[in-house]
């Protein structure tokens, strides 16, 4: 509990800024929808000027952009990217910072096992992931309602946030396992975020070329495609199962590698 509280306190300011950033992203994104609506030009006409290829790459097809829900669907990709980067950085930072700041010698000379310290850190990380998710959820409810002129997409937002949560968990645990494996603690966060960018790149490749559809399993961004989630109204069980497997393996790997390593002091 002491390590959990310590981590919550140490990350408090950072988390507040991430939440502010996320609320800002949702607010500014939905404000654009409002601006386009008020511009006297239909959004469809506006987006007709965007090359189709670009629309496909950025996952902007499959949405009715005249509706707030459609607009929010496009915005979700950016929300997901931001949440994924936060989760990856958080996971890797929570584990690697003791060695980076050379406090590991203080902490692990105390009567605490590495696995119980890890459990506290993972729980603190999980709490922060949930807080960012809730901030995203509440701001999405508010700003979609505010700019959407009464259009209710509560169910869509809920399903997207459920997907977002799994996405966050995947990248959070990829961050922790990266920090558990990598010997240089300063390199862990950049390696963890590389996975996010790589996954995003794979999702673009899949969007661009139908022949590469099999690669969709390699990119968690494709597991929670907003257009499909909103159309189906549910999460794909295959992707949920795949997410759970990735998270469980990553958590197991984190314990395994972190407990076995020689700490850098």
């Amino acid at each position: 509990m002491n390590i959990y509280l310590r981590e919550m306190k140490a990350h408090r300011t950072g988390l507040i800024w991430w939440c502010v950033g996320m609320v800002g992203l949702v607010a500014s994104g939905m404000a654009k929808y409002d601006a386009y609506q008020g511009a006297g030009v239909s959004i469809e006409e506006l987006f007709a000027t965007v090359p189709k290829g670009v629309m496909v790459i950025f996952g902007m097809t499959g949405f009715d952009l005249t509706k707030a829900s459609g607009f929010y669907g496009v915005l979700f990709l950016y929300i997901a990217l931001m949440a994924a980067i936060h989760a990856a950085l958080l996971g890797s930072h929570l584990i690697s910072k003791e060695e980076r700041d050379r406090t590991s010698e203080f902490l692990y000379a105390k009567p605490v096992s590495r696995s119980s310290a890890l459990t506290s850190k993972l729980l603190a990380g999980l709490t922060m992931v949930v807080i960012l998710n809730i901030a995203t959820l509440l701001s999405s409810f508010y700003f979609v309602d505010f700019f959407g002129k009464g259009e209710s997409i509560t169910a869509d937002i809920l399903i997207l946030m459920a997907g977002l949560f799994l996405l966050q968990l995947i990248f959070f645990t990829i961050g922790t396992v990266a920090a558990g494996v990598v010997r240089r603690p300063k390199a862990a966060p950049s390696i963890a975020t590389s996975f996010v960018y790589l996954a995003l790149l794979v999702s673009y490749l899949v969007n661009m070329n139908e022949n590469l559809d099999f690669l969709k399993y390699l990119s968690p961004f494709k597991y929670f495609d907003a257009a499909i989630l909103m159309a189906d109204g549910r999460l794909d069980p295959v992707y949920v199962a795949l997410s759970v497997v990735i998270v469980v393996l990553a958590v197991f790997g984190t314990y395994r590698f972190y407990s076995a390593r020689d700490l850098t002091v």
Partner: peptide
Amino acid sequence: GPAIREEVGYLPSEVFYYDDMRVIDLLRYS
């Protein structure tokens, strides 16, 4: 390890602590 370290006090050659903490908070954390 944890059971042993319950009764061990350790002072390393170089000391590094959490810079954002006050001394009393660090010692209470310890």
